[in-house]
Computed example of a mutant assay.
Amino acid sequence: MNNVDLTQIKAVAFDIDGTLYRAWRFNLRIAPYFLFHSFFFLKYGLVRNIMHRTAATSEFTKIQAAHMAKKLNCSPEEAEERLEKIIYKGLEKYFVNIKPCDGALDFIHKLKDKGYKLGLLSDFPPEQKGEIWGVRELCDVVLGSEEAGALKPDPTPFRKLAEEFNLPPEQILYVGNNHKYDIQGAHNAGMKTAWLILPHSGWIGKKSKIADFTFWHYNQLSNWFFNDQTNKSD
């Protein structure tokens, strides 16, 4: 844990997938769907790895489709249609009624009650997840990194998030579960960061060298965030 003055934080933003809900819950749900479309998902994974390394561009959708077309040996138009059908629309139903992380909603509502700005920044379109347990309507900013033109850890979506908040990056805390994409990306953009890990990793003392806080239950994050400020204001 780094020494950080949380009294300077004016906004808290969250990744969605694997951060507001545990990824293993979702993976269990989609297992049959994944197996049915396994070839497509494997190729899609390769393409997303490429897109994570691709510089920001207003042609994100077309470039992603072009890469998929090469992997699938089809036209870019067909690849784009299959991406929409299998990934963007096809996965929507699996988010319905998925359970959020324990304590996540309580923490978010407490932030809202205390007057903090709230945001969501995901590598996948946030609208794919519906209302996200009512969190969406509480947010001041809801952003998909694809619409910003680049996937995390590129600084572009994080800078866009700060711009939408109308705040400097150092006044934003970003909460995520993927160290390479969420934590490294937000840190490099100048934001404070909180890294959500799996409980068993926390029990053996796993921590990040760059995240300002490492946690495995949202009650820990809430206690750190609010108690630390109370102590510094005394």
Rank of each mutant, 00 (worst) to 15 (best):
K110L: 13
K110T: 11
K110P: 02
K110V: 09
K110S: 15
L111W: 07
L111A: 05
L111G: 12
K112Q: 04
K112F: 01
D113G: 12
D113W: 02
D113R: 07
K114I: 11
K114R: 14
G115K: 09
G115Y: 10
Y116H: 04
Y116Q: 01
K117C: 07
K117M: 11
L118E: 10
L118A: 14
L118P: 05
L118C: 10
L118N: 07
G119T: 11
L120Q: 03
L120N: 03
L121I: 09
L121T: 04
S122R: 00
S122Y: 00
S122P: 01
S122G: 01
D123C: 00
D123N: 03
D123A: 02
F124S: 14
F124W: 13
F124N: 06
F124A: 11
P125S: 11
P125G: 02
P125Y: 12
P126K: 04
P126I: 02
P126E: 09
P126V: 04
E127L: 08
E127D: 11
E127K: 05
E127F: 01
Q128S: 11
K129D: 09
K129E: 10
K129S: 06
K129P: 04
K129F: 15
G130H: 08
E131N: 12
E131R: 02
E131T: 14
E131K: 05
E131A: 10
I132E: 01
I132T: 01
I132S: 04
W133E: 07
W133Y: 14
W133P: 11
W133L: 08
G134I: 04
G134H: 06
G134A: 12
G134V: 14
V135H: 09
V135D: 08
V135E: 09
V135I: 15
R136E: 12
R136N: 09
R136D: 03
R136F: 02
E137L: 09
E137G: 14
E137I: 05
E137P: 04
E137W: 07
E137S: 15
E137N: 13
L138V: 12
L138M: 15
C139D: 10
C139G: 07
D140W: 09
D140F: 07
D140Q: 13
V141D: 08
V141G: 13
V141E: 10
V142W: 00
V142L: 01
V142M: 00
V142A: 00
L143I: 04
L143E: 03
L143S: 05
L143M: 07
G144W: 07
S145G: 11
S145L: 02
S145Y: 10
E146T: 12
E146I: 15
E147R: 09
E147T: 14
E147C: 11
E147D: 14
E147M: 15
A148K: 04
G149I: 05
G149F: 05
A150L: 11
L151G: 03
K152V: 03
K152C: 01
K152S: 00
K152L: 03
K152N: 02
